[in-house]
């Protein structure tokens, strides 16, 4: 489970963002070729329209809270990786967690479906409430938590099995009794992969392209019909076109699911998310060399990007991060 910090450059798409964001990004994307660029911009604009509409609706309805983090901290082998994280995550919204490498974004994400339990030496402090239930309460079964809160990883990690078996894996271990063929088809359709793979579902998932593999992982995740989908830099290993497809997909999925996405690509956060949490690393006071991740600012995405209240956020989103 060791996360290697990975450059996001390949995944970034340059699009019409507010000027300051684009020029300022430390990890500015590699522009796709001229032809693809126009297509990308066109579809990105279309996506932007639907997003705006959705946001408008969202502001009126006071969305229900899915996660309530109260002063969450995580230690690995006793030393703090991240500290003092308090935030509430709303239903049917896309929440983005951004910040430089090593600031604890993945760590916080793993708190939300108890995958930190799988890491030796990791310990979660504070309180994580999921629909008002303490996720780390004594009676909570981590396996059940993970069935409700799915996760898509940074590097596509399909099982070395057929496409069909990948999607059917979760339902099978979950004791699904219904029509598996239907469920597999529905999940692949919702992940916008069906048309590309329907001819040969028995083919190995390992033969798919990186972007297809990541969509397969999303299909696999929604096949267990979770309540929340956690995504840890899902596009960092993908090309711009695949990245855009995943972003469009998130946009469709958010009407049914709550999505939390970690990214260190700021354009992506600005494009897809409703709310953004900015993390950074603060020099620890207790030890000399020890750096601890903290949540600096958490607000509506437009606010974080255009009118941040903390100078560190502003420095980061405008690229003056030192």
């Amino acid at each position: 489970m060791i996360e290697r910090p990975m450059s996001e450059n390949r995944g970034a798409v340059v699009m019409d963002e507010p000027e300051r964001t684009r020029e300022g990004s430390s990890d500015a994307g590699v522009a796709p070729e001229a032809g693809a660029d126009a297509v990308l911009q066109e579809s990105a604009k279309l996506a932007e329209v639907t997003r705006e509409r959705r946001r408008q609706v969202k502001k009126d309805a006071d969305a229900e809270t899915v996660f309530e983090l109260k002063d969450v901290a995580v230690t690995y082998g006793g030393s703090y990786a991240v500290q003092g994280v308090s935030m509430s995550i709303r239903k049917n919204e896309i929440t983005a967690l951004i910040g430089p490498s090593g600031c604890g974004k993945t760590t916080v994400l793993r708190c939300l479906n108890r995958t930190n339990d799988l890491i030796q030496g990791a310990k979660v402090h504070g309180q994580v409430l999921y629909h008002d239930i303490d996720l780390y309460g004594p009676k909570v079964e981590p396996v059940e938590v993970r069935r409700r809160i799915g996760m898509v990883f940074q590097k596509p990690n399909p099982f070395p099995k057929s496409i069909y078996d990948n999607v059917a894996f979760g339902p099978r271990v979950g004791g699904f009794k219904g029509n598996m063929d239907e469920l597999v088809e529905r999940s692949l359709r919702r992940a916008a992969l069906w048309d590309e793979v329907k001819r040969d579902l028995k083919a190995s998932a390992m033969a798919l392209s990186g972007g297809q593999q990541q969509r397969l992982c999303i299909a696999r995740c929604i096949a267990v019909e979770p309540d929340v989908i956690l995504m840890d830099e899902p596009c960092s290993a993908l090309d711009p076109v695949s990245t855009l497809r995943i972003e469009e997909l998130m946009d469709e999925l958010v009407s049914e699911y709550t999505i939390i996405i970690v990214t260190h690509n700021m354009q992506q956060a600005a494009r897809v998310s409703d709310r953004t949490g900015f993390f950074t690393v603060a020099e620890g006071q207790d030890e000399k060399d020890h750096r601890i991740g903290i949540l600096v600012e958490y607000d509506l995405t437009p606010t974080v990007f255009t009118n941040p209240s903390d100078p560190r956020t502003e420095a980061y989103v405008t690229g003056r991060f030192g």
Binding site: M1, V143, E144, G150, N157, F159, P160, V173, C221, V224
Partner: peptide, 13 residues
């Protein structure tokens, strides 16, 4: 390890 993590995230024991 990523395969184990992937399976665990799908609710496998």
């Amino acid at each position: 390890q990523s395969l184990r993590a992937g399976a665990a995230a799908l609710g496998a024991t």
